[in-house]
């Protein structure tokens, strides 16, 4: 199925049959299904995979049954979506929240609305490739709300770091250690060197990280030509045949 190549984290192979049954049929509207989907989300958080499609089914149930909303489940869904950057996953989840939670009015005193606002700010840094700001916001000592919001997601920082490294490898052939240090949220040249060599398998020489060639970071010159086939002219030919006949 091509769908596994579709959006990031959309239809993971880890999805069990029970979940497939729920999100593929009318069971997705059954308020009781929320419990199953909540447990599945907890499993995703533990086992470090992501099923945004199933998580959206959960948000949809909350959308239709607001009395069932569990704040920490909503924020966990958003944090899981965030790890898929850059992708529309986070936005697609936001669209399913009540406006009162994602765009609260001036007098809102909802904790969930505040948490969603914080996560939106964090996600904007990732989507905008402002990785240094992302880490700065996350590590802000005056604000432990981020630590609370991400605590359920196993290996959150590591997942983000690996994803950033992957994105860097798609744009860079060489990158300075200091730039990479700020992007990966690491604190010393040694940590960067360790991460680059051990996790990514890159070489580090004289303050520069060398990234092996791949299809993305080559920027090869190409020429696009038009492929012309007889088929394209079949209608014209057919018509001229009909007119003479």
């Amino acid at each position: 199925m091509a769908s596994s190549l579709n959006m990031n984290g959309e239809d993971p192979i880890e999805r069990p049959d029970q979940i497939r049954g729920i999100i593929g049929g009318l069971e997705r509207y059954n308020p009781q299904a929320a419990e199953v989907l909540e447990a599945y989300l907890a499993q995703q958080c533990e086992e470090k995979f992501c099923d945004c499609n199933a998580n959206r089914a959960l948000l949809k149930l909350y959308q239709l049954n607001p009395d069932r909303i569990k704040d920490e489940v909503v924020t966990n869904v958003l944090v899981k979506c965030m790890t898929q950057f850059p992708s529309p996953q986070f936005d697609l989840a936001l669209h399913l929240l009540s406006p009162a939670h994602s765009n609260p009015g001036p007098n809102s005193s909802s904790d969930l609305a505040e948490a969603v606002g914080k996560l939106r700010a964090l996600n904007a840094h990732l989507e905008g490739a402002n990785y240094a700001q992302f880490w700065a916001t996350l590590d802000n000592d005056n604000d432990d709300i981020y630590a609370d919001l991400t605590t359920d997601i196993q290996g959150f920082e590591e997942i983000i770091r690996v994803r950033i490294a992957q994105l860097v490898s798609q744009s860079f052939r060489e990158v300075s250690v200091s730039v990479l240090e700020s992007w990966l949220g690491l604190n010393s040249e040694e940590e960067v060197t360790k991460f680059a060599t051990e996790t990514c398998g890159w070489k580090v020489e004289g303050g520069v990280v060398q990234i092996p060639k791949n299809a993305e970071n080559e920027a090869k010159k190409t020429e696009i030509r038009e492929d012309v086939t007889v088929d394209m002219f079949s209608r014209v030919i057919k018509r001229s045949w009909e007119e003479t006949a």
Binding site: S171, E174, T222, E223, I224, E226, V236
Partner: peptide, 26 residues
């Protein structure tokens, strides 16, 4: 338009477009 960075040097490549005539012609 495609590009890759080598440190602070941006290598840029632009795909050259041949003219597209079939659609226009038809």
């Amino acid at each position: 338009l495609d590009y890759a960075l080598q440190g602070d040097l941006i290598h840029i490549s632009e795909a050259k477009m041949g003219r597209k005539l079939v659609d226009w012609y038809l």
